[in-house]
Design a protein around this nucleic acid. Structure first.
Length: 278
DNA sequence: CTTACGGCCTGTACGC
DNA sequence: TGCGTACAGGCCGTAA
């Protein structure tokens, strides 16, 4: 699921369900995801009231009353399901790894087949310096992400603009889909050397990153194989992809007439139009 | 410092 | 049908 729009969609789904509720029990059905659950993970959460759900890049942050933050990353295949009011619900599946029981009798099930996700705890005041966050780039939808700041971050980078934008230190929250889409909107070749993106070109790219993320959030994210939303509803931004996963189709840009191609960059698929992305 | 690569896991789609 | 291979929305550690 999980680039910024999908994580934001999950955040919005969780917020009304957990805000003001108390964690009554935590079940871990295995000792680790991508990293082990830290010692005291369960005892650090039980009895805590959840005040709000935040997001930083692709991380979800469940902030508890005492300043404990439950830090969650969905990896490639992580998702949450809400089971209200102790409804019996189905038998836990083999990939249901964590169950958070909440005060009103409901529960929150974390499912993650590939187990590239993670959960850990961190004190709120130390979040900025936590290893997961200290090198994270700016939030792309905040004012700190500008053409000037982007071209500074790309300065002296010889790698492609595609791989630079995937680097969470340059900007937080982009993944393969939205990088492809933003570069297509900006008319920029994913093969361009990152440091050549400066001035008006960087400004345009910033605008395209913002635009595609905002539209994707409004659509509830993109649902490929997994459900993006906590309530099981599908996001529908995948229908608005201009390039991603559209190899062989005609480029949707007005008056372009080119064709979308799939190329490989450092082992990952990039989708682009040769004729309008330069 | 930067960049490239392999590895972590499982599921699915596709070719033979 | 069954099997093997490639690939998938992410990230980290290592090596060069």
């Amino acid at each position: 699921m999980p680039e910024l729009p999908e994580v934001e969609t999950v955040r919005r789904g969780l917020e009304p369900v957990v805000t003001g509720r108390t964690i009554s029990a935590v079940e871990l059905r295995r000792p680790d995801l991508r990293i082990p659950f830290p010692p005291g993970f369960c005892s650090g959460l039980v009895g805590r009231r959840m005040d709000r759900v935040g997001r930083r890049g692709k991380y979800l942050l469940v902030v508890c009353g005492d300043g404990t933050v439950l830090v969650i990353h969905l990896g490639m295949s992580g998702r949450f399901t809400i089971v209200p009011n102790d409804a019996p619900g189905p038998e836990p599946g083999p990939h249901d790894h964590v169950v958070l029981h909440i005060g009103d009798g409901g529960r929150l099930i974390y499912t993650d087949p590939r187990r590239f996700g993670l959960m850990t705890l961190a004190p709120l005041p130390e979040l900025e310096t936590h290893r997961f966050f200290k090198d994270l780039g700016p939030e792309p939808l905040n004012a700190g992400f500008t053409g000037a700041s982007l071209s500074r971050a790309l300065d002296r980078r010889r790698s492609s603009i595609k791989s630079a934008l995937l680097d969470q230190r340059v900007v937080a929250g982009l993944g393969n889909i939205y990088v492809c889409e933003a570069l297509h909107r900006a008319g920029l070749s994913p093969r361009r050397q990152a440091h050549t993106v400066t001035g008006p070109c960087a400004e345009r790219l910033v605008g395209c990153v913002r635009g595609v993320l905002a539209q994707a959030i409004a659509a509830g994210g993109s649902s490929l194989k997994d459900y993006a939303r906590v309530d099981g509803q599908l996001g529908y931004f995948q229908y608005a992809f201009a390039a991603y996963d559209r190899a062989g189709e005609v480029c949707p840009r007005e008056d372009c007439g080119g064709k979308i191609h799939r190329i490989l960059q450092h082992g990952r698929s990039t989708f682009m139009c040769d004729s309008c992305q330069r």
